[in-house]
C-alpha cells in the first residue's frame, strides 16, 4: 500500500520530489469506510516537508453499500470555506486499480474519537464535566453551522435539492425502505410497521438544508476539550434539519444515559442548537425523524448482516448485528410509543 500511495501522491503533487510514505496504520473506529493514516515526506526545491494524511477507502461490502464516495467528497470540497469543522479533503480517486477500491485523501486531525458506549471498564465517554459541556457547546454550534450552509451558493444542488421538507421526508423513507428490502433475509414485521407509520405521518412542507446524516457522538474528534473536526459524511444530503437532531438525540447513541449522545440533556441540546443559529425545533418533525432514526439504524445493521451472509465480507462485526438488531426494534417500538424505554 505504501508504494501505491507514493505513486498516487506523486501524480497529485508534481512540484514534489523524493516522496516517501511511512508506515500505514489501519484504524478500527469506523464500521463502514476503511480508514488508514500515514506520514508523507517530500522535498520542494531545497526545502523538506512532512505531513500526516488519511485515506478513506470503500470497503468491498458493508453497512452502507452500494458505496459511492464521490458525492461526499464533492460536498466537502464545496463547503471547504464554511465555518464547519471537518478534515479538509484533498483528492478523490475513482479508479479501483490504484488502491484496490475508490478512495479519497484528507488531512489528518489529531485527537480522540469518543465512542457512544460504556468502555470495557463500564465508564461512559465524557467523564469530565467541563469537557462534556465544552464539547456539547461545540456539538450544537457545528450542527447549526452545517444547517446554515447556503446550499445554492455552495453549488450543492448536485445532491438533488428536494422541493421542501415533505419531499425530503418522502425521499428519506424511500431510501431506507430500499436499504431494508435489499437486505431482506426473512420477515421483518417491526420494520414494516415503522415504514407504514412513516408513510402515514409524513411531515408538512418546510425548509430544507445541508444535512450531515450521521451527526452523533462517535463521529467527531476531540482535542483540548473541543471538537476539532466532524467525520463520517457518508450520508450527507439535502433534507430536513430535524433529521440530524433526531439522530444525534436518538436512544441508539446514549445507552442508559439520559443525555443525547452521552453529552447533553435533550432540552439543552435543542436550546443551545437554536441559540447557535440553528433551525427552529419542531417537535412533530422531530418525532417523525426519531422513528426514522430507528429504521435507518436497523436497515444499516441488516445491510451488514446481508453482506456477511452473502460472503461479501468476513468481518464478524457485521455478523453481530444479526443478534443486535432486536435492540433496534426495541428503539423503534419506543419511538412509536408501543413500549416505554
Amino acid at each position: 500500500m505504501r508504494e501505491a500511495l507514493a505513486t498516487f501522491l506523486a501524480s497529485k503533487m508534481p512540484q514534489a520530489d523524493d516522496i516517501s510514505v511511512g508506515a500505514v496504520t489501519r484504524h478500527t473506529e469506523g464500521f463502514s469506510l476503511q480508514t488508514f493514516s500515514f506520514d508523507v515526506s517530500w522535498r520542494e526545491g531545497s526545502s523538506a516537508h512532512q505531513r500526516r494524511l488519511v485515506v478513506r477507502r470503500e470497503p468491498p461490502a458493508g453497512l452502507l453499500e452500494p458505496y459511492d464516495l464521490e458525492p461526499q467528497f464533492l460536498a466537502l470540497q464545496a463547503i471547504a470555506d464554511s465555518p464547519v469543522r471537518f478534515p479538509r479533503v484533498l483528492w478523490y480517486e475513482a479508479d479501483p486499480a490504484v488502491l484496490s477500491a475508490p478512495f479519497y485523501v484528507m488531512e489528518w486531525v489529531a485527537g480522540e474519537v469518543p465512542i457512544p458506549a460504556l468502555d470495557a471498564h463500564g465508564r461512559p465517554p465524557f467523564p469530565d464535566e467541563q469537557q462534556r459541556l465544552s464539547v456539547g457547546r461545540d456539538f450544537c454550534r457545528i450542527l447549526a453551522d452545517i444547517h446554515n450552509v447556503d446550499a445554492r451558493a455552495a453549488d450543492l444542488e448536485f445532491l438533488d435539492m428536494p422541493r421542501d421538507a415533505r419531499q425530503a421526508a418522502q425521499r428519506a423513507v424511500d431510501v431506507w425502505e430500499g436499504y431494508t428490502e435489499r437486505a431482506r433475509l426473512g420477515p421483518m414485521p417491526m420494520m414494516t410497521e415503522a415504514l407504514c407509520w412513516l408513510r402515514n405521518n409524513l411531515p408538512p412542507e418546510g425548509d430544507v438544508c445541508l444535512v450531515h446524516g450521521d451527526y452523533r457522538t462517535g463521529n467527531f474528534i476531540v482535542r483540548d476539550d473541543r471538537i476539532a473536526a466532524f467525520l463520517d459524511w457518508e450520508m450527507v444530503h439535502l433534507g430536513d434539519p430535524m433529521e440530524d437532531l433526531a439522530w444525534a438525540m436518538s436512544k441508539i447513541w446514549r445507552g442508559e444515559s439520559p443525555r443525547a449522545g452521552y453529552l447533553l440533556d435533550p432540552n439543552d441540546f435543542t436550546a443551545w442548537y437554536q441559540e447557535a443559529g440553528g433551525a427552529k425545533v419542531d417537535q412533530d418533525r422531530l418525532h417523525f425523524y426519531e422513528v426514522l432514526s430507528g429504521v435507518k439504524m436497523a436497515s444499516i445493521m441488516l445491510t451488514g448482516v446481508k453482506a456477511w451472509h452473502d460472503g461479501r465480507t468476513r468481518d464478524m462485526r457485521m455478523a453481530i448485528f444479526d443478534q443486535q438488531v432486536p435492540g433496534m426494534y426495541a428503539a423503534i417500538a419506543g419511538s412509536l410509543g408501543l413500549i416505554q424505554l
Binding site: 460504556l118 468502555d119 417491526m190 453481530i320
Partner: peptide
C-alpha cells in the same frame, strides 16, 4: 392486535439481548 404481538416479541427479544460491545469493537 398487531401492536400487542410486536410489544410481546420485543420484550422476549430484549430478555436474551446482551449489551453490544461497541467500545471494544471500535477501539480494538
Amino acid at each position: 392486535c398487531v401492536h400487542e404481538h410486536l410489544v410481546n416479541q420485543t420484550i422476549r427479544d430484549a430478555f436474551y439481548l446482551k449489551p453490544m460491545r461497541l467500545s471494544e469493537m471500535s477501539k480494538g
